[in-house]
């Protein structure tokens, strides 16, 4: 059997397993999807209410679309980020981690499998949210360059995957606090990436930090494509930083993960009991 057949089958093992988990934990999934839909609606209604809040005339349509792009992209990126960063937490909780780590599967294959599912599942959930939200708001996408937006979103996923892998290390290092720490990383990304506001409103030093978040570029590109109808060629300047970040963070994440995995095996942190 060739190396590639083996790794491909193992990749599919993770995709199928995660699919089965979503299926079996459908109750939880329903809760999360409902939560994310309600959340998106609440934020988008801020746009709808802005004229009343401020007592001045604003371009409500524009504002609604602006916030909607933010909330949908954030919901997508956080599903991708969560699925990857919770890879370890989840298996530790189920107690299967030793079995997965004992299998003859390279860590990159493990990550690729997890990531493929994460991206597919993120798209699925975001489309559902979008579907529901369109019932509530009049959304005009005539000007939007949706193909270009999709392309940039996929490129953006690559760099988010790298961040996810780095974050997945934390639960391996800290059995109990690890998963809370990944949520802190996520919250910071939400703050600095200009999800609901332009980053220019942030203090200077935070603006500098926001340059390091891939979500900043994804959001900018999305808004250019959807709100201003920029062509795909015009979106390319946003793609480069994302690609560079992906090319750096994914190998870096795998490297760190390898080091931490060895550390966990030296200090006995993989096991749960027995």
């Amino acid at each position: 059997m060739s190396f590639w057949t083996r790794e491909l089958r193992a990749t599919y093992a993770f995709v199928e397993r995660n699919f089965n988990l979503v299926k079996r934990y459908w109750g939880w999934e329903l809760v999360w999807i409902t939560y994310s839909i309600v959340n998106s609606l609440a934020i988008t209604f801020i746009g709808a209410g802005m004229e009343k809040i401020s007592g001045q005339s604003v371009d409500t349509q524009f504002l609604i679309l602006y916030l909607l792009v933010g909330t949908l992209i954030w919901s997508y990126l956080s599903v991708v980020f969560d699925s990857i960063s919770e890879m370890i937490t989840w298996e530790r909780w189920e107690g299967t981690i030793e079995y997965t780590f004992m299998a003859p599967v390279s860590r990159s294959t493990h990550m690729i499998g997890t990531t493929l599912f994460a991206v597919a599942y993120g798209i699925f959930r975001t489309l559902i949210t979008l579907g529901v939200v369109t019932f509530f708001f009049q959304i005009n996408l005539e000007k939007a360059n949706l193909a270009g937006a999709m392309l940039l979103l996929l490129i953006g996923s690559v760099s988010f995957i790298g961040f996810g892998i780095v974050a997945a290390v934390l639960p391996l290092l800290f059995s109990e606090r690890g998963s809370q720490m990944t949520h802190v990383i996520e919250a910071l990304l939400l703050l600095i990436s200009g999800i609901y506001y332009p980053i220019s409103v942030l203090p200077d030093w935070l603006q500098t930090v926001s340059m390091l978040s891939p979500a900043t570029y994804v959001l900018d590109a999305m808004r250019e494509a959807i709100l201003h109808g920029k062509s795909t060629v015009e979106l390319l300047p946003y793609a480069w930083p994302l690609l560079v970040m992906g090319v750096i963070t994914i190998p870096f994440g795998l490297l760190v993960f390898g080091i931490v995995e060895r550390f966990a095996k030296r200090t006995g942190r993989l096991k749960r009991s027995g």
């Binding site: 059997m1 057949t5 083996r6 089958r9 193992a10 599919y12 093992a13 199928e16 397993r17 089965n20 988990l21 079996r24 934990y25 189920e94 107690g95 299967t96 030793e98 079995y99 997965t100 004992m102 299998a103 003859p104 599967v105 749960r272 009991s273 027995g274």
Partner: peptide, 29 residues
């Protein structure tokens, strides 16, 4: 190699078939 430990560690909500299918695929079946 393979190992059996005292605690039968599985994905609790997955069926026997789903758990074992996952294991088998990891060993490139």
């Amino acid at each position: 190699i393979n190992r059996v430990s005292v605690d039968a560690a599985f994905f609790k909500k997955l069926s026997a078939m789903e758990n074992l299918l996952y294991a088998a695929r990891l060993y490139s079946m």
